[in-house]
């Protein structure tokens, strides 16, 4: 059947198709980011970023929501990083290939694909109600930690496994113990990759709204303690848009979120690039 079109012509047609699909993807991104920034820029001002919301966010600024986002993300990263990196070290340095390791991998995989709203449900039933933490920065942050964990674990494991085995062997040969080798040789060498994983986990936590919908509350004030309710930026955007409070402020909030994500993407790329060059150099 495929001989009907001469191969040379088929080659030309398909090259065109591939170029078109690649360019289409770039166009989609440019349209979305361009449009959000275009509509959001007029709303962006110092008063908007650093001001307090007026009348539930119909006007005024988004400062409490920026602070909420920073707090919950910080908690998520502080909890998820030791767990994720520890697990990655165990999986790549200590564990062989046995049942427990397979189970751990399947657990991490499942964790990374469970819908965010199910994390929200769990956060509500476990942190908010069962542990009695209420709608708070802590409940929201811990829920987000569960979501960031598999991302950090996977990135750390890949980066630890890519380290040249001779580093660890050299250290062991000098009489260092396994643990000394890990924290003085292996982890420092894998640090750029681990950092990338942490930043990716951060991106996931900053962007998430469904998981905090029923765990963090929807306060309009800057949270002053771990037990205060809060309202991260994505949740604020969701409330503004679905309740039709203020389109201008919704665009502004969307623009702030997109700018944050752009910064995160650029930073990770620079880090990965440097890391690659360093590895190639040796």
């Amino acid at each position: 059947m495929h001989r009907v079109i001469p191969p040379k012509i088929a080659q030309k047609i398909m090259t065109g198709v591939f170029w078109a699909s690649g360019l289409l993807t770039i166009v989609i991104l440019l349209v979305i980011i361009g449009y959000v920034l275009l509509k959001g820029m007029p709303a962006l001002s110092l008063e908007f970023i650093l001001g307090n919301p007026i009348r539930s966010g119909r006007s005024g600024g988004i400062f409490p929501f920026i602070m909420s986002s920073i707090y919950v993300t910080l908690i998520a990263i502080l909890v998820a990083t030791p767990l994720g990196v520890g697990a990655a070290v165990y999986l790549s340095e200590y564990a062989g290939e046995n049942r427990i390791v397979k189970l751990i991998r399947f657990g991490a995989e499942t964790l990374s694909s469970i819908p965010s709203i199910v994390f929200g449900l769990f956060g509500l039933a476990f942190f908010v109600i069962y542990l009695g933490l209420g709608w708070s920065v802590l409940s929201g942050g811990l829920t987000l930690a569960l979501m960031a964990l598999p991302t950090i674990l996977a990135a750390s494991e890949v980066s630890i496994e890519s380290i040249n085995k001779s580093y660890a062997e050299g250290s062991l040969a000098l009489g260092a113990t396994k643990w000394q080798t890990i924290y003085k040789v292996v982890i420092p060498a894998a640090l750029p990759g681990i950092t990338t994983g942490v930043i990716l986990g951060m991106g996931r936590a900053i962007a998430e709204a469904a998981a905090v919908l029923y765990t963090v509350g929807a306060a309009l004030m800057i949270p002053t303690s771990l037990m205060d309710a809060a309202r991260p930026l994505p949740l604020h955007l969701y409330i503004l848009a679905t309740e039709g409070l203020s389109m201008q402020n919704a665009w502004g909030t969307a623009a702030v979120l997109v700018i944050m994500i752009l910064i995160i993407t650029v930073v990770t790329n620079v880090l990965v690039d440097r890391y690659r060059k360093k590895m190639m150099g040796r």
Binding site: L237, Y238, I261, V266
Partner: peptide
């Protein structure tokens, strides 16, 4: 490649709002 990374990172509520 960074374009695709950025698409993956944009919060889902921003897509929904769009």
């Amino acid at each position: 490649e960074p374009t695709i990374q950025t698409l993956a990172g944009i919060p889902s509520v921003v897509y929904g709002f769009f």
